[in-house]
Amino acid sequence: MRLPRHWQLWAMLAPAIAFVGVFAYIPMYGIQLAFRKFTFQNGLTGGEWVGLKYFEQFFESPLFWTLMRNTVTISLATLVVGFVAPILLALIVNQVVHAGRKRFMQTATYLPHFISTVVIVGMLQVFLSPSSGLLTRLAGLAGVTDVNFLGDTSTFVPVYVISDIWQHCGWNSIIYLAALSRVDTQLYEAAKIDGASRLKLVRHVDVPALVPTMVVLLILSMGGVLSTGFEKVLLMQNTLNLPVSEVISTYVYKIGILSSQFSYSTAIGLFNTLINFVFLVVTNQIAKRVSGTSLW
């Protein structure tokens, strides 16, 4: 075999390929667990073949539609708002001229990213407590009384999404700021000479520069459309909001880890992954047609 021309590059890539192979591809043989009745004595691959039994069990479960609806609602809301917010933030930060202020704003917005989920949920519990919460009282002053933000089924998704945006918006905007810093300054000058206002500069210079980044990130996040933040949802769950907060991942945790239903939970996990994969492919195709940017 002839050594590839860029063998140095391949050598550098090798550890990454090996890593993905060992930790992503080899374990895939375990997927057959979803089609077998798992008994420990017979091992991972020795259980009785039951075909699609566990998938049918999931589809026929009275919880199926609730789980699907909750999961899609939470993740779509996070995806849409979480996609737009960092772009807006990046455009705003980019408008700040003073270097020191710009740095301060950037740091201040991305710091919450490093707070752990448990602490964030603890903070939500304190701020939103129906009897003593700071935000609940502020809402009371604004005329919104008798709302239990932590328990109401209609406020669970907004609380989840808004706190998520607050936490991750700054961090996610870094990649857009990087894209904006590469915009050729001649473009701004040319536009200004043509009489463009500040808003027009943003609209016709900045935004087009961001489109390729936006498309790639959108496709990537569509690949996780059914994946919700497991820890945060589980921590925020209580008996009042359970009808809207039970999602696929928390259900898999309860049924798979706590009740040892390994085959059943593997089947649900596999189903989840398949849906995500379909979304990824479809978004990619649409992006290719519409904007000419795509992953492959």
Binding site: P27, G30, L44, T228, E231, S249, V252, S265, G269, N272
Partner: peptide, 19 residues
């Protein structure tokens, strides 16, 4: 998602330890 990852870990671990 994380729980699925966890299950995968268990599965991977099982195969590694079996070896």
């Amino acid at each position: 998602m994380a729980s699925r990852t966890r299950l995968w870990c268990a599965v991977t671990l099982a195969s590694v330890l079996a070896l």
